[in-house]
Design a binder for these strands. Structure first.
Lengths: 181, 181
DNA sequence: TACCGATTGTTGACGTGTCATGTATATCGG
DNA sequence: CCGATATACATGACACGTCAACAATCGGTA
């Protein structure tokens, strides 16, 4: 019965269903713990990590969006909110009149440094440590394959595949552009 | 140096990051295809599937929230939006003055029936069919374990563990996105 | 019966995300 | 140098989610 060609078998349904539940619950839990412990949302956390990674704590908005695979508009909105909370500031981009630099503030640095250890340990406690090395390996392999497939077959527009290390010209990949007058 | 007790090894980092990317991209892609093809959002889809599963196409709001593991407030808001679009209606609940029944409309039924086949096939194309049976099995095992752990250790409040509603009659796995053909 | 706590929903404020659109600057071909 | 096109970002409208406060009903019990 139920031989409808594209339907899911009970096994597949269970796997898919469980996977969805896991995603939602895990993300929700991690997000709530992060927020409760550090007053930072998951998106906040990502942005601040990116910024602390840059040697001078500032990056182009577009650059940030690319690194975190978010759309530029989303980044703009979110940076606006973070500015309001004093975690980052916008700065003019010398050398490119339309550009904007997002710079982490001392308050932002303080926040991320306080948040990171707890967050990482939560990831460990709630997820990593519950998997065997083989399972973790399988998961990584699966994830890489699916992501690659999604990027190869862009049904419609995804945020451009300009991945974490956007192919920047001039051999400088992650260092903040330091234009001179 | 990096011997901070709770840090992630490079392997773990890679697995975790890949996993996050996969989740986001997959959900985003499926959501966009669903929306483009059927004018239904992912949450819409879930609600309509639940309703078509009920023999008379109506369920208590609380019941719906439980089955989909959403908070009742979220359900209330979302049902309000769906009412506005004519996909469902609210009805008084005979026998319980505070209760509310959510009933699917003909338009709603039409929408879900049009959406389901495409959506399921997208799940297959973008995910299921790219995994070996062993991988799918591992994934299901992992997911079940993590979910169980999350429910066992409620750090703070999750949507009440008051599990996914009562098992439905007939052996039909409740999650078949199955708009009775 | 009358009260009290628990259950069921609604609502408003606000953070977050998407889409479509608008504006300014940059860049390139002529 | 000029105009066409592309790039970088902002913005407004709206969908979605959470939290906290509130309102109404139900149920048991004194």
């Amino acid at each position: 019965m139920d031989e409808t060609p594209g339907w899911l078998t009970p096994t597949e349904q269970h796997a898919w269903r469980s996977f969805l539940r896991m995603q939602e619950k895990l993300a929700a839990r991690l997000g709530r713990e992060l927020l409760a412990d550090s007053k930072l949302s998951t998106p906040d956390y990502g942005v601040l990590v990116e910024l602390t990674d840059a040697p001078d704590g500032r990056r182009r908005l577009q650059d940030l969006a690319g690194a975190l695979e978010r759309e530029q508009s989303r980044m703009s909105h979110h940076v606006a909110r973070m500015v309001k909370r004093g975690l980052v500031v916008r700065e003019e981009c010398a050398g490119d009149g339309r550009g904007v630099l997002v710079a982490i503030t001392p308050a932002g640095r303080e926040a991320i440094e306080a948040a990171a250890p707890q967050h990482v340990s939560a990831v460990r406690r709630l997820f990593i440590d519950r998997l065997t090395p083989e399972e973790l390996d399988t998961l990584a392999r699966i994830s890489d394959r699916i992501v690659a497939a999604l990027e190869r077959e862009p049904g419609r527009a995804d945020p451009p595949p300009g991945g974490p290390a956007a192919p920047r010209a001039g051999g400088r990949s992650r260092h903040a552009p330091r234009p001179k007058p």
